[in-house]
């Protein structure tokens, strides 16, 4: 198999990887915020249910979760998963939302009570205080840990191969199996490396952009 052919094949896989990455990110970021609110709720049953859920999701392997989401509906409820990609996406979104929720929670709890009180004495509503005062400060504080998770997510997309989603790692492995050449594995690695390199540059740019104030 020529270099051009391998490139073409890997690009196909890379497209799937990108799709998985972007969809997971777009869905898990807001869902994580909702879960964070749940785990900070003053309504105790909701708080404990959410915390238990986060514990289970963070305490078990993502690979196991992918397998579970793919097989459980079919084997237990007789409603087989229609798409492998969908199964992976659901597992990823839930898993990453839980990780994000803890980052959000840390960020939100790090904002001093004084900021809320200042908003209150100025007659603002709770919603206004959160969205106009607190959220921005939270975002600034969570960018470094979020960057970490986001870069991990890029690499975790390779777990999708466990249920035969044709992403980058799976396709490169296929080439190795069929043609008996090893270098496409390293080539695939280069894809991840370059992608993460670009992401790092982007994220540190965002971090710099928010450096116009301290605190």
């Amino acid at each position: 198999m020529s270099f051009a052919e391998v490139t073409l094949e890997l690009l196909k896989g890379f497209a799937v990887t990108c799709q998985l990455f972007i969809l997971t990110l777009v869905l898990a970021l807001p869902l994580g915020l909702i879960i964070a609110f749940g785990s900070m709720s003053r309504f105790l049953p909701l708080k404990y249910v959410t915390k238990a859920f986060v514990w289970v999701i963070r305490g078990t392997p993502l690979m196991l979760q992918v397998i579970a989401v793919f097989y459980v509906p079919g084997l237990v409820f007789d409603l087989p998963m229609s798409s492998r990609m969908l199964a992976v996406l659901i597992a990823f979104v839930i898993n990453y939302a839980c990780y994000f929720s803890e980052i959000y929670r840390g960020g939100i709890e790090s904002i001093s009570k004084g900021q809320y009180e200042a908003g209150q004495v100025l007659g603002l509503t709770k919603t206004q205080i959160f969205f106009k005062i607190v959220l921005f400060q939270v975002i600034k504080r969570i960018i470094p840990p979020m960057s970490n998770e986001i870069i991990t997510l890029v690499k975790d997309t390779s777990l999708a191969r466990i249920i035969a989603v044709e992403e980058l790692t799976r396709l490169s492995q296929d080439i190795v199996n069929v043609y008996g050449i090893v270098w496409p594995l390293f080539y695939a690695g280069a894809f991840y490396l370059v992608f993460n390199g670009l992401l790092s540059v982007l994220l540190s740019w965002v971090e710099k952009k928010m450096d116009f104030y301290k605190g």
Binding site: S112, G114, Q115, E117, A118, I133, F136, Q137, K214, G215
Partner: peptide, 9 residues
């Protein structure tokens, strides 16, 4: 407030 509580952003 004692410690101002200005909005930093």
């Amino acid at each position: 407030f004692q410690n101002f509580n200005l909005f930093p952003q």
